[in-house]
Design a protein around this nucleic acid. Structure first.
Length: 803
RNA sequence: GCAGAUGUGGUGGAACGGCAUACACAGCGGACUUAAAAUCCGCCGGCGAAAGCUUGAGAGUUCGAAUCUCUCCAUCUGCACCA
C-alpha cells in the first residue's frame, strides 16, 4: 500500500500547513456555549535575526496543549502577535535611516513565515502587533484611564540614563551599574518623568498570588521583588528639630536596645540642624563623597561601613529616655522607609558591624545569643531582657506590646513597607507609543480626547535622540505644537514615549477581540475568554512583564473593563536551550542553530519532537545534533509502520500496550512531562516492531497521540490510512480494564533487600501469596531458621521481614 | 549574606515512599550488502576475587528512601546594606 512513498517531510509539511490554513481549523470559534481554553505564549519581539531554536520550545509545548485540548472538544484560543516597539528596531533605523515601521513589517513577515513553517496551530486571524496604531490606540486609552484615576503622575526624578543609548532606564534595566542592552555605564540625571503607581497595588499583587497556579519559583521571586515587610514607624525626639526623627523598623521589640541612630546622607535633618552640628565640615565632606557614588558603588563598597557622627545632635530613645547619638551613613538609603533608622547593634547584623567599627555601645535586649560575638537576630527563640515592661516576652508578643505602647503615647504606629518602587514610564525614544497628553500653561497636563486616539507618531527623517537625551520627537516641532483640548490656548505635546512594557501589559486582552474599534475588546469576548488558562514564558519576565501586566489587569478590573482580578490562572516557565558547547547561543560565538536549516534538512516535526524530548521542560539544556537525529529516526520508524498495517480493530495482545501508551501520553502532557510522553510512544512503537504488525485502528490511535507533537506526519499517515483528518478527530480515552494483566511480576525482598522475582496470578489472595513466597527455594538462604516478623505485600513488591 | 532550584551511567535524562538507570544519544557485536550508508536484531553503569557495595557526603524516619527530615559540600539562578 501507501508505504512505498518515502517520508518526504518537505512536501508533507507544506501540504498540511496549506490544508490547515484553508480549512481555518485552528481558529477560535465564536460559539460561547462551548467550554473554552486559552493557551498563551509570550509574543516575540520581531528582531532582524528571525527565530532561533530557543523560540520553538515554549511555542511547541503550548501548541501541544492547544492541539490536544481541541481534540478533547474545547474551543481553544491560541493566538500569536508581535511586541514590535522597541530599541533594537529604533537603533537599526538610526543606523540605516529606514523607517522603523518598514523594518518592523519586514521582520514580522520573517517571523510569520517561520512560525508557519514550524506548524504552530495559531489562530492567524487574530495576529496583532503593538506598533499598529489600531492596537496602540488602546494602549494609549489605558494610559489615559490611569491618568484619570491619578495613577499616572509626573515626578522630578534622578533617572538612570544610559550614556550610549541616550535613554532613561528603569531600575530593572540597569545591571550592575551598566545598561542592560548595551553594557555602557549608566549615570544619574534629573528629569521630569511619568510614573505609574504600581505601589498602590503592591499588597494585592502579593496577596492574590495565593489564588493562582504559578510555580513556587515564580511566586517567590515576585514576593521578594515586591518585598513587603511589616514593622513600625516611630518618631524620636531631637533637640532643635521639632518634627522629630521618624524611623522605620521591623523590630520595634528591640527598641530598648537602640543605642544610636543613623540617617541617610541626603536626609533633610542634616540641613535643618546644620547650626547645631559642630563638625559640619566633616559631615559635608561625607555627604559630598556619598553623592558622587552611584548606587552600584555604594552597594559594592558595602562590606566596609563608613559614617560620620552628627556631633552636637542627640535623639532621645523613647523607651529608655536616654540621649543617643545620631550618625549619617550611606548604609541607610533615602529611598526606603523614612531614610532613617534606629540602630540596634545587638540584634541587627549591619548595626552590629557599624557599632563595632565605631565603638558604639551594644546592648542585649533579646536573650539567646552572644552579642559580644555577633548580632542575635533570631525571632523564634529569643526572650526579651533589659527592656522594662517587655522583659520575659517572646519577640512576637513584644512587638505587639511595644506598638500598643507607642500608639498610646502617640509617637508610633504599625507600618508596612515595600521594596517595589513606582514604575518609571517615560522613555526618551521615538519608536514607542506617544503619551497622549499635552501641556498647557493654564490647564497643566491635559489628556487628548478619546475620540482623537490614536495619537500617531509623526513622520521624521532622523530617529536619533537629541543630544540632551530627549527623544527624536523633540525635533518634530509641527507635531509638538498644538492647542489645549480644554481651553484652546497654544500647548505642547509630551515628547516622551511609553516603555516597551506598555504594549505587552494587555495584549492577551486584545486577542479576545482583536478587530474591535469601539473598545480594547468587547465585554462579552473578555468575559468568555478571560482569564488565560495557561501562560508560558521566560523566567526573566517574572519581575517585569508579569508584574506589570498583573498590575494593569487589576486596574482594568477596578474600572470594570475585565471581570477577573487576575489575568493568568497558570504560569509556567521553560528552560533555555544552550548551544552544543554548553554556552549561550550567540552570533559572536558562532554557535547559533537556525530553525530554517533544521526544518529543511529534517523537518519541522523532527524539530518539534526533539525540543519536547530534549529534557524536562523547565530545565536549561544544551542542544544535541545527534539527539535530533534520534528523533528523526523515530519518525522514520513510525512512517515505516504504514508497511506493517494488517487488519482492523484492537487486537487483544496489543491492547495493554496501546492503552498504557494512551494513558501515559494523556497524563504526561497535562503534567508538562513532554519527554516521557514521547518515550511512552517510542516504547509502544518498539513493541509493534517486535510484534511485526499493527492494525489500521491501532495505528490511527497512535497517530492521534502523536499529532500534537508531530502534526504533519501524523496527518499524512492518517490520510493514507483513509481516515478523516486528525484535526477533526477525538482524543482517545484509555480503558483502565485493559491495563490489568492476569499475571503479575513481583519483586521479592527480604528485610528490604531485593532477593528474587516471582510471577503470580493477579488475583492471588494474601494467604496464598504468603505461602508461595515463603516456600520459594530462592529465599531459603535468607529466611531459613529465622522468625517471620512481618509480611508486607504492596503493589508489585513483597517484603519478608525476618529476625 | 538572603532566597529559590539542581546534584542519578560515557551523554540528555526515567523512576505515585516499593524491582534504580525507562526512553534516547554515543559505543560494541550480528544480519542484509561486492562494499558503504540506511535498516533490522542483539549487547551495553561503576567498584569488587566473591558475598556484595553503589543515586554529591553524612546522619535520621520507615518493613522499605534517588524520593521524606536534618547537617554539610558543589553547581546554577534571582535579590543584594530594604532597617
Amino acid at each position: 500500500m501507501a508505504g512505498e512513498k518515502r517520508y518526504d517531510h518537505i512536501a508533507i509539511e507544506k501540504k498540511w500547513q496549506q490544508t490547515w490554513n484553508e480549512a481555518h481549523c485552528f481558529e477560535a470559534k465564536d460559539d460561547r456555549s462551548l467550554p473554552k481554553y486559552y493557551a498563551l505564549i509570550e509574543f516575540p519581539f520581531p528582531s532582524g535575526a528571525g527565530l532561533h531554536v530557543g523560540h520553538p520550545r515554549p511555542y511547541t509545548a503550548l501548541d501541544v496543549i492547544a492541539r490536544k485540548k481541541r481534540l478533547e472538544g474545547y474551543n481553544v484560543l491560541f493566538p500569536i502577535g508581535y511586541d514590535s516597539f522597541g530599541l533594537p528596531t529604533e537603533n537599526y533605523a538610526i543606523k540605516t535611516g529606514e523607517h522603523p515601521m518598514k523594518v518592523t513589517e519586514r521582520n514580522i513577515s520573517v517571523f510569520h513565515r517561520q512560525l508557519q513553517m514550524l506548524g504552530m496551530s495559531f489562530d492567524w486571524s487574530r495576529e496583532i502587533y503593538t506598533s499598529d496604531p489600531a492596537y496602540y490606540k488602546w494602549t494609549q486609552w489605558i494610559f489615559l484611564k490611569l491618568f484619570e484615576k491619578g495613577l499616572a503622575y509626573k515626578a522630578e526624578l534622578p533617572i538612570n540614563f544610559c550614556t550610549s543609548c541616550k535613554v532613561g532606564l528603569a531600575n530593572e534595566e540597569v545591571i550592575d551599574g551598566t545598561c542592560e542592552r548595551c553594557g555602557a555605564p549608566v549615570i544619574r540625571m534629573v528629569r521630569s518623568q511619568w510614573m505609574l503607581k504600581i505601589t498602590e497595588y503592591a499588597d494585592r499583587l502579593i496577596d492574590d498570588l495565593d489564588k493562582i497556579d504559578f510555580s513556587d519559583r515564580i511566586k517567590t521571586t515576585q514576593r521578594n521583588w515586591i518585598g513587603r515587610s511589616t514593622g513600625a514607624e516611630v518618631t524620636f525626639k531631637i533637640d532643635g528639630y521639632p518634627e522629630g526623627l521618624k524611623i522605620y523598623t521591623t523590630r520595634p521589640d528591640t527598641m530598648f536596645g537602640a543605642t544610636y541612630m543613623v540617617v541617610a546622607p541626603e536626609h533633610p535633618l542634616v540641613e535643618a540642624l546644620k547650626d547645631r552640628i559642630t563638625n559640619m565640615e566633616a559631615v559635608e565632606a561625607y555627604r559630598e563623597q556619598a553623592a558622587h557614588k552611584s548606587d552600584f558603588e555604594r552597594s559594592e563598597l558595602a562590606k566596609d561601613k563608613t559614617g560620620v557622627p552628627l556631633e552636637g545632635v542627640y535623639a532621645i530613645n523613647p523607651c529608655t529616655e536616654k540621649p543617643i547619638p545620631v550618625w549619617i551613613s550611606d548604609y541607610v538609603l533615602m529611598g526606603y522607609g523614612t531614610g532613617a533608622i534606629m540602630a540596634v547593634p545587638g540584634h541587627d547584623t549591619r548595626d552590629w558591624e557599624f557599632a563595632m567599627k565605631f565603638g558604639l555601645p551594644i546592648v542585649e535586649v533579646v536573650a539567646g545569643g552572644d552579642v559580644t560575638k555577633e548580632a542575635f537576630t533570631d525571632c523564634e527563640t529569643g526572650v526579651l531582657v533589659n527592656s522594662g515592661f517587655l522583659n520575659g516576652m517572646q519577640v512576637e508578643e513584644a512587638k505587639k506590646a511595644i506598638i500598643e505602647y507607642l500608639e498610646g503615647k502617640g509617637i508610633g504606629h504599625k507600618k508596612t513597607n515595600f521594596k517595589l518602587r513606582d514604575w518609571l514610564f517615560s522613555r526618551q525614544r521615538y519608536w514607542g507609543e506617544p503619551i497622549p497628553l499635552v501641556y498647557c500653561e493654564h490647564c497643566g497636563w491635559v489628556p487628548i480626547p478619546e475620540d482623537q486616539l490614536p495619537l500617531t507618531l509623526p513622520e521624521i527623517d532622523n530617529y536619533k535622540p537629541a543630544e540632551d537625551g530627549s527623544s527624536a520627537l523633540a525635533r518634530a516641532t509641527d507635531w509638538i505644537h498644538t492647542t489645549c483640548p480644554k481651553c484652546g490656548a497654544p500647548a505642547e505635546r509630551e515628547i516622551d514615549t511609553m516603555p516597551n512594557w506598555a504594549g505587552s501589559s494587555w495584549y492577551f486582552l486584545r486577542y479576545c477581540d482583536p478587530h474591535n474599534d469601539k473598545a480594547l475588546a468587547s465585554k462579552e469576548a473578555l468575559d468568555y475568554w478571560m482569564p488565560v488558562d495557561w501562560y508560558n514564558g521566560g523566567m526573566e519576565h517574572t519581575t517585569l512583564h508579569l508584574l506589570y501586566s498583573r498590575f494593569w489587569h487589576k486596574f482594568l478590573y477596578d474600572i470594570g473593563v475585565v471581570s477577573c482580578p487576575e489575568p493568568y490562572l497558570k504560569r509556567t516557565s521553560h528552560g533555555m536551550i544552550l548551544a552544543e558547547d554548553g554556552r549561550k547561543m550567540s552570533k559572536s560565538f558562532g554557535n547559533v542553530i537556525n530553525p530554517d536549516d533544521l526544518c529543511r534538512d529534517l523537518g519541522a516535526d523532527t524539530v518539534r519532537l526533539y525540543e519536547m524530548f530534549i529534557g524536562a521542560f523547565e530545565q536549561t539544556i544544551p542542544w544535541s545534533t545527534t539527539g535530533v537525529m534520534g528523533c528523526r529516526r523515530f519518525l522514520d520508524r513510525v512512517w515505516r509502520m504504514l508497511d506493517m498495517v494488517k487488519g482492523e480493530g484492537e487486537r487483544p495482545e496489543m491492547r495493554a500496550s496501546l492503552h498504557t501508551c494512551i494513558k501515559k501520553v494523556t497524563e504526561d502532557i497535562e503534567r508538562m512531562k513532554f519527554n516521557t510522553a514521547i518515550a511512552g510512544m517510542m516504547s509502544f512503537v518498539n513493541e509493534v516492531y517486535s510484534n511485526g504488525s499493527i492494525t489500521r485502528d491501532e495505528l490511527r490511535t497512535l497517530l492521534i497521540l502523536l499529532d500534537p507533537f508531530a502534526p504533519h506526519i501524523a496527518e499524512e499517515m492518517n490520510e493514507q490510512l483513509g481516515f478523516e483528518p486528525l484535526y477533526k478527530a477525538k482524543w482517545p480515552v484509555w480503558d483502565e480494564a485493559a491495563l490489568v494483566s492476569n499475571v503479575q511480576e513481583l519483586g521479592i525482598q527480604v528485610n528490604g533487600k531485593l532477593r528474587t522475582k516471582m510471577t503470580v496470578p493477579a488475583d492471588i489472595s494474601q494467604e496464598e501469596l504468603k505461602e508461595l513466597v515463603l516456600s520459594n527455594p530462592d529465599l531459603a538462604n535468607w529466611i531459613e531458621g529465622k522468625t517471620l516478623r512481618k509480611f508486607i505485600a504492596i503493589r508489585n513488591i513483597v517484603n519478608v521481614v525476618v529476625g
